[in-house]
Structure formats: structure tokens, C-alpha cells
Simulated scan of single mutants.
Amino acid sequence: MKLTIIQTGDVPPALRPDFGAYPPMFHRMFEAAGATFEYEAVPVFDGAAFPDPAKLDAILITGSAAGVYDDFTWLDPLRAFIRHAYSTRTPMLGICFGHQIMADALGGDVRKSEKGWGLGRHKYEVKSRPEFLATDLPALSIACSHQDQVITPPKEAQVFMGSAFTPNAGLVYANGAALSLQPHPEFTDDYTLALAELRRGKAPDAVVEEAVASVSKPSHSGDMAGWLGAFLQR
């Protein structure tokens, strides 16, 4: 099965020498979780043409420094791509910006949150238990890095995890083939730390320090990676 990664951004240049490009993070995440895919990366943020979603096995839309409110020329084609994929029930997963642009394209409201930066490992309460979420845990801890949030989910979406800081952190869609997360299960601990440190001077010092301390707590990223892989492959 081929997973087409719709790449909407990349690792910040300052961190790329140590951590490489963004798509291989997903390769490693799924491989560690035992999910086997062939991969194709389509860097639409860098001008790559969108494929026909009806002809794809599965889609993953990545994180990005972009916001849904920006005026990049690739954003409207991405919205059209998402709507087409949704209508054809092509399995589709959005992460961080991917989560936001899916919600935006399908009728939700996405904005820069007045709550500011979310950094480090956050804990999200399980709000509902869709079939793919194979756990009885009351909460899941996963790394995040964002300012924007889904303020109002689309009517087609059900919230399955959230927190006081990010109420709509996980959405599963009524077509049965679309799913999205605000946090980043693909982030390793060392990358989470490096990204938090990179935000010094942009995010408040207290937020950065809390993010750094949070990485010592247990993570459910590996569990989530397995559930996401199974969702895409089913």
C-alpha cells in the first residue's frame, strides 16, 4: 500500500542538519509501529502538482509553518484536493496544519488561538472512542507545536480527544475514511526538545521551560502511530 505524503512544510532550516527532512519522520514513525507502507512525498508547498486523490491508496497531510488564513497559492488547490479525497473516501490523515486545513476545507473554523503557543508533550483526554482508537486509556500524551487551532469543527467531524488548551485536538469524520490530529506523534523526544528551544524569544520562557520538562513524562506517540497506521490500511 502506498502512502502519499502531501508535504505542506519542512523541518526548520536550523534543525535540518540534525533531523533531516520532514517526510522520513513519518516513515520512521510507522516503521517503529509495525505499519508497512510504500511512500511518495509530494511537496506542494514547493510547487509540486497535486495528484488525483481518487487514484491514491492513502493520504497524509503534514504540518507546516503556514496558516489556513495565509495567501499561498497552493492553499486553495489543497482545499479542493481535500474535498475531493473526502468525497471519494480515500483514506486521509492530517497532522497539525494538516488537521487544521482539513477542518477548514470541510467547513470548520480555524484561527490563531488567543491561548498562544502549545509546545512539548501535552495530555489530551479521550472524548469519544471511534473504532480505530484501540485503547481504554482516559488520556493520551503526545508532542505538539502550534499556535493555530480548530476553533469550531466541521459538522461532519466528531471530537475524539481534546484538552483545556486544545479542545478539538483530534477529529474523526463521518465518511469513515478521514481522521486528523493537532499533535505530532511523528516527533521524537530530541526533536520535540530542539523545536521547543527554537521557540525561545517567540514563546514565553515559562511555556518553553514547561515544554522541556514535559518530555520526561511518558508518551503515547508510538501507540497512536500504530492506530493511525491501522486506520489507513484497513
Rank of each mutant, 00 (worst) to 15 (best):
M1F: 06
M1P: 07
K2Q: 14
I6S: 02
I6A: 02
Q7G: 02
Q7T: 00
Q7L: 00
D10W: 02
P12T: 04
G20C: 09
M25V: 04
F26R: 04
R28M: 10
M29H: 05
M29C: 07
M29A: 05
E31N: 08
A35I: 05
A35H: 11
T36V: 15
F37R: 09
E40L: 12
V44E: 07
A49V: 10
P51Q: 04
P51Y: 00
K55F: 05
L56P: 03
D57N: 14
D57W: 11
S64T: 00
A65L: 10
V68K: 06
Y69R: 13
D76Y: 11
A80C: 08
I82T: 06
Y86I: 08
P91Y: 03
M92F: 02
M92G: 01
F97T: 02
G98V: 00
Q100R: 08
I101A: 02
D104L: 03
A105V: 10
G107F: 01
D109H: 13
S113P: 05
G120C: 14
R121Q: 12
R129A: 10
L133V: 10
D136H: 15
P138K: 13
P153D: 12
E156N: 08
A157F: 10
Q158W: 05
F160D: 12
G162E: 10
S163K: 06
A164Q: 14
T166S: 15
L171A: 09
A174Y: 06
A177P: 10
P183E: 00
E186S: 04
F187L: 06
T188K: 08
D190C: 06
T192C: 14
T192F: 04
L193I: 15
A196M: 08
E197F: 01
L198M: 13
K202C: 11
K202G: 13
P204L: 11
D205I: 08
A206R: 13
V207P: 10
E209G: 06
E210K: 15
A211I: 04
A213R: 15
S216E: 14
S216P: 08
P218A: 07
S219Y: 12
S219C: 09
H220W: 01
S221Q: 12
D223T: 11
M224I: 09
G226Y: 09
G226Q: 06
W227C: 03
G229R: 05
A230M: 09
A230F: 04
R234S: 15
